[in-house]
Design a protein around this nucleic acid. Structure first.
Length: 243
DNA sequence: GCCCAGGTGGGTA
DNA sequence: TACCCACATGGG
């Protein structure tokens, strides 16, 4: 039997073996700006709806900072209607381009070249950009190693017994940042795999534990009769004492 | 018809 | 600080 890896790497390895590479924004047609727009549009929204909105924006030639800065808010809202919260998100996209022109001469590249702490602080100062969106931009558009936490991450790692269900964003993020190498490619793939697991198997209701690649690691495994659940998997024991 | 989705900001106690 | 709520479309 091979040597046991760190729990977080063991989980990653299992997810990757099960789902394979997710190819999140590897070279994005629309470039970094499309990634930023996608990160804002996907807030509390299924990605399939975001794709429709992005297609509308591309067709309307609105996927550039300049075009988005110039377009009327109502027209922008109409384009992104399929992504939901369209009035709100139009306002957020406008706030971002406004910020880009006011602070960085309209150059996204200039913004994304900032060091991680400065970039994050700048992004968090923009209306409509919170920690998850900021980190998604830093990781997927700026290609800087920062771990993106989302609702799936919280749910999955709470079920695994490695985080509290109400753990604040920063605490969850610190869990990963403290125990994984700061590798952009790893963080990219890990987050995408968490989304794949949360969306397909570790669902909020009716999770498919039977088919889960983390079966055997998870105390919440619903495919195990309740009275048979005895204790936390051994590989988490020592790990938990350190987190 | 009902639930859920890759959150965030604003208001109230 | 700690909740509670608005924001909205589309797929299962």
């Amino acid at each position: 039997m091979r040597a046991m890896q760190e729990p977080l790497m063991e989980i990653y390895a299992r997810l990757f073996a099960h789902f394979g590479a997710q190819h999140w924004w590897p070279h994005s047609e629309g470039g970094a700006f499309e990634i930023v727009v996608g990160a804002i549009l996907t807030q509390n929204t299924a990605w399939a709806n975001v794709e429709k909105a992005l297609a509308n924006l591309a067709r309307a030639r609105l996927l550039t900072p300049t075009a988005m800065q110039r377009v009327a808010p109502t027209r922008l809202a109409t384009s992104i209607r399929p992504s939901g919260y369209f009035n709100l998100k139009a306002k957020r996209l406008k706030a971002f381009t406004q910020f880009l022109f006011a602070e960085h001469r309209g150059s996204l590249a200039r913004l994304l070249a900032l060091a991680t702490p400065d970039l994050r602080a700048a992004l968090l100062g923009v209306y409509g950009i919170g920690p998850e969106t900021a980190d998604a931009i830093i990781l997927y558009a700026a290609h800087q190693p920062i771990f993106v936490v989302d609702a799936y991450t919280r749910r999955i790692f709470a079920r695994l017994g490695l985080a509290r269900a109400d753990a604040p964003y920063a605490e969850l993020q610190a869990l990963f940042m403290a125990h994984l190498p700061h590798d952009e490619k790893l963080f990219n793939e890990y987050h995408a795999l968490i989304v794949a697991l949360g969306k397909n198997l570790c669902r909020k209701t009716a999770p498919r534990c039977q088919a889960c690649p983390l079966r055997g690691l998870c105390p919440a495994d619903l495919s195990i009769p309740r009275k048979r659940v005895i204790m936390r998997p051994a590989i988490f024991q020592e790990f938990r004492s350190r987190i």
